[in-house]
């Protein structure tokens, strides 16, 4: 009887290890996720409709025009709505992120780690992904998220400058896209959960078109982003300049 149990156990372990996702494969998944989000060789533009729900401030809708040039690591976010924020812009050029305030007509330095317009989305959520550069895969598990079969990747930051030291991402086995992301603090507290519920195939890349960022520290605080008007047409270099932001405000 003992022999049979041992044989069944060894067979189970062998079977499991033969089909389970390894750390190396997890790293490959990260590489795919990064490349899915990068539009190298072409530009990217879209309209973002953000709904921010805050228990204190209520619900606010923001409409943003997004322009990206991933080849040169540039992006521009221009706020169109609400009227009070209209004309504000975030410009990433030469590794510096600038915020433009049309009221003072001044640019101030800001960080990718800062929240975008007091929402639950960070400025870094609007750039191409660089998970492979910033994180190591420390564990991979298989699981289910709703009806989807997923690989759950536990990530640990490779350096102490990354915003979230730990992440857990739920990657769909079908299409290798992120469906859910949990971001943890240095002390291991869950800070934010992101859901990527809709994707659109654009020039061979899956682009998340519906995202929910849920603040896990402040009860009831979340931001929903819907992306439309996606285009990969070339964007003139003059768009990624301070003068362009000033010009569109005149």
């Amino acid at each position: 009887m003992k022999k049979i149990i041992t044989i069944i156990f060894i067979a189970a372990v062998t079977f499991n290890s033969a089909f389970a996702t390894t750390i190396e494969e997890g790293t490959e998944i990260l590489k795919i996720i990064d490349s899915q989000s990068n539009f190298e060789g072409s530009d990217f533009s879209a309209t973002l409709s953000m709904i921010s729900e805050d228990p204190e401030d209520g619900i606010e809708k923001t409409v943003v025009y997004q322009f990206r040039d991933d080849d040169d690591d540039k992006f521009l976010l221009l706020i169109k709505e609400p009227t009070i924020n209209k004309g504000q812009g975030y410009l990433l050029i030469d590794d510096n992120l600038w915020f433009y305030d049309p009221d003072s007509r001044k640019f101030s330095h800001t960080s990718m780690k800062e929240q975008f317009n007091d929402s639950d989305a960070n400025n870094s959520d609007f750039t191409s992904s660089s998970l492979l550069e910033d994180y190591n895969v420390v564990a991979v598990e298989e699981g289910k998220l709703g009806s989807y079969d997923v690989n759950i990747l536990s990530l640990e930051a490779t350096n102490n400058e990354v915003t979230y030291p730990f992440q857990e991402i739920y990657v769909s086995k079908q299409g290798t896209v992120t469906l859910k992301k949990e971001e943890f603090s240095k002390s291991g507290t869950l800070l934010r959960t992101s859901y990527y519920t809709k994707y659109k195939l654009v020039d061979g890349n899956y682009v998340a078109t519906y995202m929910i960022f849920q603040d896990e520290l402040i009860e009831g605080k979340k931001t929903t982003i819907q992306i439309s008007n996606i285009s990969t047409d070339d964007i003139p270099d003059s768009v990624f300049t301070k003068s362009y932001i000033e010009r569109v405000n005149n």
């Binding site: 102490n160 603090s185 002390s187 800070l191």
Partner: peptide, 15 residues
Amino acid sequence: IVFSFQTVSGQENVA
């Protein structure tokens, strides 16, 4: 209460 902040090197942390 919870205090959410960034470490000196810029990582998110809570206490």
